[in-house]
Amino acid sequence: MAGLSNCLRDHRDRAGLTQADLAEAIGVSRKTINTIENNVFTPSTLLALKLARCLGVSVHDIFTLEDDV
């Protein structure tokens, strides 16, 4: 089964945001951002969309099926 990988950290760095900034902007804890970046936690579609909107990219830019890499 394909796993999910993400490059949230790259997009966040590019946007010049800290984990705390991004967490505050979308209304979650910093720990949530950290666990997503470390592939410990897979966010819901709703949270993925919020992240993408906040970073000005599409969900597909952040999250990728490992088969596609």
């Binding site: 967490a23 209304g27 979650v28 804890s29 720990k31 949530t32 936690f41 966010p43 819901s44 949270l47």
Partner: peptide, 14 residues
């Protein structure tokens, strides 16, 4: 509401 939402966010509920 925002503080409570962050404290009980998606990760916490999961």
């Amino acid at each position: 509401g925002k503080a409570a939402g962050i404290a009980w966010d998606e990760l916490t509920r999961a």
